[in-house]
Simulated scan of single mutants.
Amino acid sequence: MTPTRHGTRPTMNDVAARAGVGLKTVSRVVNGESGVTPAMAERVRAAIAELGFRRNDSARLLRTGRTASIALLLEDIGDPFSSQLARAVEDVAVEQGCLLFTGSSAEDGERERELAMAFCARRVDGLVIVPSGTDHSYLEPEIASGTPVVFLDRPAAGIDADAILSDNAGGTRQGVAHLIRHGHRRIGFVGDLPGIHTCAERLRGYREAMARAHLPVDERWVATGPTDPPRVARAVARLLEGPEPVTALLTANNRITATALGVLAGRDVRPALLGFDDLELAELLTPGLTVIAQDPAALGRTAARVLFERLHGETGQARRIEIPTRLIARGSAETGPPAG
């Protein structure tokens, strides 16, 4: 860092003097505001680099009431779907000159609440939450005080708030219709806990697609519960037993799909398989895995943009935005035992 004439940390006044411009011009460049010519902005940036100037965010907070930071609460940052959401939210935050803080709730509603309140105590400007809890009324005081909250992947419970979701029911209807077109009539559904919004919507789409095709649903074909591998493995094995086993499986998220693939790997005759959520390297399996693919990048970008619209003064009713899914046929849903 080049010393200033005072031998202290350089200020915007020092930058202005070095660049030969006014203090307001430096402020506009530092804060990414318009109204500065490219040549003048370049002079300011050169002076900033030469002096080693760093913006004083504490002073900025006192002046604007904003910390230029937002927080994202996920289920598990290690999950590939969650990490893609995080990257998309961060990209928009960077565009807006904001820092992103991230935490994982581990599907624990109390941990979600603790993290959300901890971020609010640190004065983040807004929150994006993939919810785990069943009551989000604890956020009402924060929202009333001006901290916008956007829910991602699942809607809020107990409050009215912006929600950015995948078209879970529509995507599942499309996937089940695809299986039906390939001759399948006994189609099993393996999902996670039915009280979770995404599972409930995907199960609804499954039932609607079967009803539209005038096909009955034997409740023995539906297996929901925790996503731990032993439970899923037992459910898949049960659906494939008996005199009339299912000829096709719809696995309702990527964790369930991964376990199902392990179960099916040891079988000579495999059912058709359709997974909700894509898997890395899914196209390299034999046969390739057919999926209903979500768009985590679009989900994350949309949630972040809605949050910044609220931060920039957008008012009005809470919005519910559904991002389309996409059926990717790779072979696993188009093969299997004789359908019937």
Rank of each mutant, 00 (worst) to 15 (best):
Y206V: 01
A200F: 06
M210Y: 13
T198Q: 12
P243K: 06
V217P: 02
H214Y: 08
V222M: 02
V246P: 06
A211D: 15
V222E: 01
E241Q: 14
T227R: 08
G205L: 05
P229F: 07
V236P: 06
Y206P: 04
A213T: 11
R207I: 09
R220F: 00
R202C: 01
A248M: 00
P216I: 10
R231A: 14
A200N: 07
R204D: 15
E201I: 00
V236R: 05
G225Q: 11
R212F: 10
V222I: 15
R238G: 10
P245Q: 01
T198F: 07
R212N: 14
V236I: 14
G205V: 05
C199H: 08
R231T: 14
R202K: 11
E208R: 11
D228T: 09
R231C: 04
V217A: 05
E208Q: 13
E219I: 02
E208V: 12
A233R: 09
A233F: 01
I196A: 07
Y206G: 00
R234M: 08
G205K: 09
R234P: 02
R204K: 13
V232Q: 03
H197L: 09
G225C: 03
G242T: 14
L239Q: 10
I196F: 14
T198W: 07
A235D: 15
A223E: 13
G205N: 10
L240M: 06
R212W: 12
P230D: 15
H197T: 06
R231L: 12
A213Y: 12
R212H: 13
G195Y: 15
H214A: 15
P216L: 11
T247W: 00
L215N: 07
E208D: 15
R231G: 07
G225T: 08
T224W: 03
P245H: 01
R234Q: 15
P226E: 11
D218N: 12
